[in-house]
Write a protein that binds this DNA or RNA. Structure first.
Lengths: 396, 396
DNA sequence: AACGCTTCCGTAAACGTTTACGATCTAAGA
DNA sequence: TCTTAGATCGTAAACGTTTACGGAAGCGTT
């Protein structure tokens, strides 16, 4: 249960700092000269030139054994004398050997790298929030590291077509598997990846949710819970703020909203469905739309916690206080939602555990790890827990 | 100049959605069965198996020419008949050829990939905010794409040592160059990368700011401007919220703060330097510390806009209104700072341009691109522009 | 006719690794 | 002593690409 922000006091701390720094302005780009120590005459050009690194062949020469044996020793194969294996490992450490991934990939057709595609479009900015992604990423990484798999985040720029981007990533054999996010209702990435037989798991389902592995937050269940709670408070006119893109979670959230209304015996009113970008700007727009309705809705559920900031703002401008004059339930608990005034009633989940489950699901679809992880036969809906804040209240 | 949030109205939109979806609870993980269509009997295991792709050799066989010619044709070398080149390109397109990066990397010792290391520690969460990183990333990517370079984000999990992580990344020849961020005052990554001759550029300088290429936001200039503005308003007791980690921007910011005070003829008081995590929680702690001071400071400058949310919260709890009872200047303009109440007085910069400059600086240090970009001989301090909000005010 | 130059293309080596196959040696069993 | 099995290791091919080198053909000049 929610316990309010921590009250730990931090005393003044006198940090050391560089004294005598030059006074600055912020009008122009100011330049601080490099020391000449590391700099050739013409700048940094040609400064960085990779030197040849120690290869498996160097180890072999150094130990007077064949490169095959060295490779087997390093890879833990059985047919190598324990004593030689020790010598190889020792030499590898002292000579600073680190395997060349290109050579390895070329030979065995695998890259030991997993890609986590993160969308950065405006519409899905709520997913692009790193306060969401960082813990998820950490959970994913903790699993992959146990299997010597590297994880990279692939961010498709807004000025590049996501399809072209995905095509290049998988075409170049850049990754062995993919985690994709911000799944659209009709998502061309799904059939694309299925056809190419690229192992993947989606964070979010699409309309075709039976044909591929996915994990989705429980947007439906939370919407039902939120609406039911508001109905229990006596609210009759409950608005809902959903993304104005085709991202599937919007549809799922809306479905839960309708189910919640039906459960409470309240008729669905399309005018109360407000679609907007799922960020602060969108929340502001949702509030504007609510203010135009007559009579104004007495409550609103938001698909995204960032929207709450913009919504709060618009209502404050009009002298309307959320939590006093109107009830607001947001979606996800975050540092933001905890420190807003009023604090946001929303839903809690373990992002790190979500990441771990994503990784395990992906591994269970990859042939090389089939025996380590049980096959997942169904999409997973990730549960969330209600966190009561100050922003929702009984109807007047 | 700041013009207030947009007032565009969004009408109600009736989204289509899947009817007849099963009612849900959020108590347990609920499962939706996959269709059997794509599923083998034992789940997804062995479902994904990569088929052999078309190689340069297949193209050669198909056209009855040598693989050398095919390679030259594809790479735009001069010694190939324009007519043959056309045939090769046509065949590549129809057969769906896409070059194997491992083979290419192995041969030419370069990966055509740049890594953008993003720290995800708690202390540097402000930098981990994707509303900061996404536009920067987009700018970087737009430059690299022109040179056929791929960009990946490397996020070191909190449970892995950053040094070990960096060592593996560069050791495996995973990237040709690196962008690192959240530079520490004494940052071991700098000498490490310098010694290995890995091309890199740092977002943020370290104490040794003369020996490597970097771009840093103008934390010094903005702190001076902020303090000078507050002094001009008649404030005498001005607190400052800085990160409680060794990230260098904290030292730079504090230096600017002191310069601003000196410029205004106000004596520096160590008790007014409040170190805290640079997020909402930290802002809350800063407010707590301010409340304990007698007399309480009448103004505060924050190194980070997320802190403002927590600081606002604590003051609201005490019935103190920022912008009315106390003056607040935050650091960076963002969607958050624009929609807070009161809106935050802060500083604006073009994140996308920053990304472009980062990319160009990195390229200028890489031998392969020396002729495309002029050598950068100095660290760059990125200018920012004051955005006046509602949160700062004259002293009482 | 001899020569040089240009254009175009084929040959083959090389990048660093893994792995199938076979060779060698030792020890045990007949 | 001969055979067999196991342990250990070397050999060499293969992954897909780039590129130095040289050859062949065509053309113009002496």
């Amino acid at each position: 249960m929610w316990e309010g922000p921590s009250h730990r006091i931090v005393g003044g701390v006198n940090l050391t700092f560089a004294s005598g720094a030059s006074a600055g302005t912020c009008a122009n780009v100011r330049l601080a000269n490099f020391t000449e120590k590391y700099m050739p005459a013409r700048g940094l050009v040609n400064f960085f030139s990779r030197e040849k690194s120690v290869s498996i062949r160097d180890l072999a020469r150094h130990l007077n054994i064949s490169i095959g044996t060295v490779s087997r020793a390093l890879n833990g194969k059985s047919d190598v004398n324990p004593e030689t294996r020790q010598r190889v490992l020792q030499a590898a450490k002292t000579l600073g050997y680190v395997p060349n991934q290109s050579g390895r990939s070329l030979r065995q057709g695998t890259t030991n790298t997993i890609g986590f595609m993160i969308e950065s479009t405006v519409e899905t900015a709520e997913i692009g929030d790193s306060f969401f992604f960082m813990p998820v990423f950490g959970g994913v990484q903790s699993v992959f590291r146990r299997h010597q798999l590297d994880l990279v985040a692939l961010l498709c720029g807004t000025d590049e077509d996501p399809g072209v981007y995905l095509n290049r990533v998988v075409g170049r054999r850049f990754v062995d598997g993919l985690i994709i996010s911000a799944t659209m209702r009709e998502d061309p990435r799904i059939p694309f990846l299925l056809e190419r037989k690229i192992p993947f798991v989606a964070l979010g389902r699409s309309a075709a949710d039976g044909s591929f592995p996915w994990i989705d937050l429980d947007f439906e269940g939370t919407a039902i819970t939120a609406v039911t709670r508001l109905v229990g408070f006596g609210h009759k006119r409950i608005a809902v703020g959903v993304p104005n893109s085709d991202v599937n979670l919007g549809h799922v959230f809306l479905s839960g909203y309708r189910q919640g209304l039906a459960k409470g015996g309240i008729e669905f009113n399309p005018d109360l469905v407000l679609a907007a970008p799922s960020n602060e700007e969108g929340g502001y727009q949702v509030a504007c739309a609510m203010l135009e309705q007559k009579p104004m809705p007495t409550a609103v559920v938001l698909v995204n916690e960032n929207m709450a900031i913009g919504l709060y703002r618009r209502f404050y401008e009009m002298g309307i206080h959320p939590g006093r004059d109107i009830a607001v339930i947001g979606f996800r608990e975050s540092t933001q939602s905890r420190f807003l005034s009023p604090t946001l009633t929303c839903f809690r989940l373990s992002l790190r555990d979500l990441g771990i489950k994503l990784a395990e699901t992906l591994l269970s679809t990859m042939p090389a790890f089939e025996n380590n992880y049980p096959a997942v036969k169904s999409g997973i809906i990730w549960p969330m827990e209600l966190v009561v804040g100050e922003s929702d209240r009984p109807a007047p």
